Amino acid sequence: QEELVKAFKALLKEEKFSSQGEIVAALQEQGFDNINQSKVSRMLTKFGAVRTRNAKMEMVYCLPAELGV
C-alpha cells in the first residue's frame, strides 16, 4: 500500500496524466496489478488532487503543492 501511494504521488508530480485511465495504466506498468479506475479515483480524492493546466496547456492531474511530495 505504501509503495502504491509513493508511485501514485510520483506519477502525479510529472503532471502529464489527463485521465484516470492513464494513471491506472501507468501504475499497472509499474507492477501494481490490482489497481483500477475506482481505486485511482479514491486516491485522487484522498490526496486532494486537482486538474490543472501544465506547461503545454494540457489539462492534467496534479497534487496541491502544500502536500510537499
Results as ranks from 00 to 15, higher is better:
T45G: 08
K56E: 10
A10Q: 13
E22T: 05
G31K: 03
N36V: 05
Q28C: 06
G31E: 02
S19Q: 07
K39Y: 11
D33C: 10
P64Y: 04
F8P: 00
A49Q: 02
Q20C: 07
V24W: 04
G21E: 15
Q20V: 15
A26F: 11
S38W: 12
G48N: 08
L67F: 07
K46M: 14
E15Y: 06
Q28P: 00
I23W: 01
E22W: 03
E22Y: 03
L67W: 05
G21V: 12
A55K: 08
G31Q: 02
I35A: 06
L4D: 01
G48L: 04
E3R: 08
V5W: 09
A26Y: 11
I23R: 00
E2F: 12
A65S: 14
V50E: 06
Q37R: 15
R53W: 07
K6F: 09
L67Y: 05
I35K: 00
C62T: 15
Q20D: 07
R51A: 05
P64D: 04
K39F: 13
E2N: 11
E66N: 10
K39S: 11
F47S: 05
Q20P: 14
L4I: 07
A10M: 10
E15W: 06
R42F: 13
E3T: 11
L11V: 05
Q37A: 12
Q37N: 09
Q1C: 15
A7N: 04
V60L: 03
I35Q: 01
A10Y: 07
Q1Y: 15
V60T: 04
L67C: 12
F8M: 07
R42G: 11
V5M: 12
G31I: 01
E58V: 09
K39L: 15
A10I: 08
A65I: 11
L11T: 02
L63A: 04
T45Y: 10
C62Q: 09
K6D: 09
E3Q: 12
K13F: 08
S18K: 15
G48S: 05
F8E: 00
E15D: 05
F32Y: 08
A49C: 05
N34M: 10
K46E: 15
A7R: 06
K46D: 15
G31V: 01
E15H: 10
F17V: 04
